[in-house]
Write a protein that binds this DNA or RNA. Structure first.
Lengths: 241, 241
DNA sequence: CGATCCTATTTCCTATAGGAAATTTACTAT
DNA sequence: ATAGTAAATTTCCTATAGGAAATAGGATCG
């Protein structure tokens, strides 16, 4: 009558259960939905059917609704009264330009703060991570991994800035989703990897000005790459309905 | 499909719609709870009893829980698994500093953009509004009106920046709410009005540098005022549990 | 053929019920 | 008297039920 698969999982990990108290189902559902949304498993702009989501997850609609209420406050979904929620839509080229402008205000400062705040361990971890990703391959899974790599790299820096307001505002923007949807055939990851490495190096050296400048360069060149792709006509601008 | 005349007709009857078409209960509950939280009708740190709140509001626990889930994502309450929620503590000095730092990254740029974008009508409207508010009286209602005045002024500028990301990120931060909660007992010397007027003037003159500088001054003096209040011991620092 | 209205089904939203965890109360033993 | 424990009560959390709105399907009319 309740969630059988979860119960099986609980029996399997019964020892672990004794140590860590089971967290409410809502938190699990929320984590799953956020993950699906961030990974494009929930299509932006699409309507969410609460009952079917609940069935698919093996839970009742109640925790699903609660998770969606959280996600609404996070700006990840948009409530349409009496019509459930839709996944927050992605954007067109003009809005993307505004997004880059916005990030140019914030992320260079975040990188500078990270250069001042990061411990040696954190700095080397960042450098290691920067070198780890960005295969640049063209198949779908590599592309998705590259997107996660990019998002994670920027989030690590935001975290190192020690400013939760800053970090939250970037997470909410979901820049990586917007960028990769509009422009995933260009060799974004391959091109960005050396730029990430440069940013990480400046942070590891504790040089805030160089870190900020490297971040600025990274963002402006990303915007220029996108402009080039659009100018070449490879991508058509999608009308947001 | 959306004929402009039809849309106008809909707007005309929008007031009538609001009477009949009632918005979901969750939204009402959320609004009430946020208001109670701002006015310290919900005391910071106190545990929330979902059932009794539902009884007091004359609704069932379900919409109350949903509203609380939203408020959790907004940082207004803190979830304690299996123990409901507690009201989030008042913002501490360190978080407040981070919030001002964050705004210093964004709002001067917003003011500069507004100086470039604002039409003459919009500029004079902004100036009129800047001069309209900020009574500075000490009673509770005046204090609240001053808060709304301040929040509105900053939001108008964010809107005039023509960058929705920028505006959204400021709205989501809800700085005015946090400040109002801190200064609920009416002690804020509302010296902000002349600073607002100065910002509005620079924007009206179409001078982006002056506008940015005036905004920077406004924010840094606000931070200094806060430091003074904390230093005077009127407000206690929040101990992180 | 297209538009409007009416019916049927789906889906949302709120209330209620019940199991499980947490808290309080009461009791026992040292 | 106090510490520890067990029972009783409260409270949370999830599932389910049912009324109300919205969508889909179909028929009638222009």
């Amino acid at each position: 009558m309740e969630h059988p698969d979860l119960i099986d999982a609980m029996n399997a990990t019964q020892a672990a259960q004794r140590l860590t108290a089971r967290q409410p189902l809502v938190d699990d559902v929320h984590a799953v939905l956020v993950d699906m949304l961030m990974n494009h498993a929930l299509e932006p702009g699409s309507r969410l059917n609460i009952d079917s989501m609940a069935r698919n997850l093996g839970v009742s609609p109640t925790p699903v609704r609660e998770a969606l209420a959280r996600m609404e406050a996070q700006g990840l979904v948009v409530k349409e009264p009496r019509r459930s929620y839709i996944v927050a839509p992605l954007i067109g080229l003009e809005d993307l330009r505004a997004l880059i402008d916005f990030r140019l205000l914030i992320e260079p400062a975040a990188a500078a703060a990270a250069a001042l705040n990061a411990s040696p361990d954190e700095a080397t971890a960042l450098q290691t991570f920067a070198r780890s990703g960005g295969s640049g391959d063209q198949d779908a899974t590599s592309n998705r991994l590259d997107m996660v790599y990019d998002a994670t790299f920027h989030d690590i820096i935001a975290k190192l800035s020690n400013n939760s307001w800053l970090r939250e505002s970037l997470l909410r923007a979901r820049s990586h989703l917007h960028m990769y949807r509009l422009y995933h055939h260009a060799k974004q990851a391959a091109a960005t990897k050396p730029e990430h490495v440069a940013i990480a190096r400046a942070i590891a050296q504790g040089d805030p000005d160089a870190a900020a400048e490297a971040m600025r360069t990274h963002l402006t060149t990303a915007m220029r790459r996108i402009d080039d792709v659009f100018a070449s006509g490879e991508l058509k601008l999608q009308k947001p309905r």
